[in-house]
Design a protein around this nucleic acid. Structure first.
Lengths: 211, 211
DNA sequence: ACCCGTTTCAAACAAGTGTTTAAATCAGCT
DNA sequence: AGCTGATTTAAACACTTGTTTGAAACGGGT
């Protein structure tokens, strides 16, 4: 077994368990037994349980953020070329679509998306920061791009609405399997693949509402 | 010290710690020492840590849901009186305003709102159900009322958008102290009291977006 | 074949977990 | 005062937690 084999097995197992059971509710013993590695190998390869979480997040979020930033920059430069402000919808699409596409690319990716969707509301600050440190730069880019798209919105209200958008997104990201009304008499759960367009329509309408 | 004194002290402490540190990350020893009660009294009065969580949720959520349902019914009957469909905004306001008012009524209430805001995305199913069992009926009422208000929306898309609304709300409810961008160069955090109107405007616009 | 740095392994560590027990204390009543 | 049921208390229980240890196994290079 090569070195990276053990490391990826741990990362995959951690991704799944942290997402489905929660970080604090996942023990290294269940994790290492799921990944078929020795208990001590987590501390050997990653140093600690927390550093493992950091590694789990970085492995997926760094590439995803690169894609999201590229797409946003593409929208911005295309708008600049025709000397007009960028479209808010195009910007939000550039941010949301890669996220949801990635989410559907593999079961592990789905777990990961659900994991970072919950990180925002994670009470433990050190855990929350594992995610926030990597998420803030791209959110900064998005905020400034949206400000170009909608200059009539005051920065304060734009900020507030961006928070609402993130809330909406993170909620969708979390609901990997358990739809909220899953067991009620309400209409049946929705198809997750067919969720992107309604989501974009919703957040764009909310963002562009008259102040 | 009367019986209810100990019980309330436990409930208050649990509310605070479950909200700020998370359920799994709160030990009965830190809880009982914060509440200045004996360790065994939690199991004596509530049976188990999980039943305590149930009690914490029920104490606040049952009255709050009563208020929310009353206000929704009031909007519905007022609309019926003039033989016109209810306004979506009035319905969402009837649902959101009591929540946020209650949230600002006391520090414990703020903790509680943040706690149930996070319950939706709680990975542990038994914990999630503690909250969901009490939340589903009122959501059912809201769904049907909104269907009356916006009959042109298909039940499926209305359902989807209601999920988005709940996601937006729960995110706002969670951010008791830690604004997301709290430490960035983005505009400063917003005033939580002045959050209700922007929130209503956002979710109404998203809900009423053309299909 | 030997050596050497890397990786794996079983075992142990100290600390913390929710829960239970049985004795002690309290409050209300006759 | 003395009895009775409800509550509080300190101690212990059985178990799990993340981490550390030192020896064993591995793999490539000379």
């Amino acid at each position: 077994m090569s070195q990276s084999d053990t490391k990826t097995r741990i990362l995959d197992g951690a991704e799944q368990l942290f997402a489905r059971e929660g970080f604090h509710n996942t023990s290294l013993r269940t994790l290492t037994s799921l990944a078929s590695v020795n208990l001590a190998s987590v501390n050997y390869h990653f140093g600690s349980k927390e550093s493992l979480l950091q590694a789990v997040i970085e492995r997926r979020l760094l590439p995803l953020n690169r894609i999201r930033e590229e797409k946003i920059e593409k929208v911005l430069s295309a708008a600049k070329k025709i000397a007009s402000p960028p479209e808010a919808e195009a910007l939000l699409r550039a941010f949301i679509e890669p996220t949801m596409e990635f989410r559907n690319s593999s079961p592990g990716a789905r777990d990961f998306i659900s994991l970072i969707g919950r990180s925002l509301t994670e009470p433990d600050e050190t855990i929350r920061n594992c995610f926030m440190d990597l998420a803030l730069p791209i959110l900064q880019v998005l905020f400034e791009a949206l400000h170009q798209a909608l200059p009539q919105l005051s920065p304060a209200i734009l900020m507030t609405r961006l928070q609402f958008i993130i809330g909406t997104m993170s909620h969708v990201m979390c609901m990997s399997s358990h739809s909220i009304f899953h067991s009620s008499e309400l209409p049946p759960a929705f198809d997750h693949d067919a969720l992107v367009e309604p989501l974009i329509k919703y957040v764009v309408a909310g963002l562009e509402a008259p102040e």
